[in-house]
């Protein structure tokens, strides 16, 4: 028989939930993996929109303008650095994606923490190796 409430109770609400979330120490590795995966996913989709925008200039303005814009962007140092960030987001998202697909196949569920750290470590290594290609 389903239960019903008998007393009025205090709803601590979403605000308090968020307030609690400010304390970084309470989040566990699995949760960080989730946050990072969502964040990098957002970065990638945001990039995709910008990328389509830049490509669109070739269609709307003609290919000469497109080349000018692209060269202009590539000459900016900040864009290069941002590209590293994009690359990092991509690498982590891909590696952690593999981790999540593994879970879907019930592989490695008991070593999820280690797998998360591994994807972080691998991302770092790959991104570091890629830095010269972006900055040269």
């Amino acid at each position: 028989m389903s239960k019903e409430r008998r007393v009025e109770s205090y709803d601590r609400g979403r605000i308090e939930d968020l307030g609690r979330a400010k304390d970084w120490a309470i989040h566990k590795p699995g949760m960080w993996a989730f946050y990072l995966h969502r964040f990098t996913g957002l970065v990638l989709s945001f990039y995709l929109v910008m990328h389509l925008g830049v490509l669109g200039t070739g269609f709307w303005l003609g290919h000469e303008e497109y080349t000018v814009i692209l060269q202009g962007l590539e000459s900016l140092y900040i864009v290069r650095v941002l590209e590293i960030g994009l690359f990092a987001a991509f690498v982590f998202h891909a590696l952690n994606g593999i981790r999540i697909v593994m879970f879907d196949m019930t592989v490695g569920l008991d070593i999820q923490e280690q797998l998360f750290y591994l994807s972080i470590a691998l991302s770092f290594a790959i991104v570091l190796a890629g830095v010269p290609f972006f900055l040269l």
Binding site: K28, P29, G30, M31, F34, I100, F103, T106, D110
Partner: peptide
């Protein structure tokens, strides 16, 4: 389930609900 593993981490009886759900 988002495989956040919070449930698995806090379970005082070392049950892994995530594992159960994923299976």
């Amino acid at each position: 389930c988002h495989t956040q593993f919070n449930c698995t981490e806090v379970c005082p009886k070392n049950i892994s609900p995530t594992e159960a759900i994923m299976e």
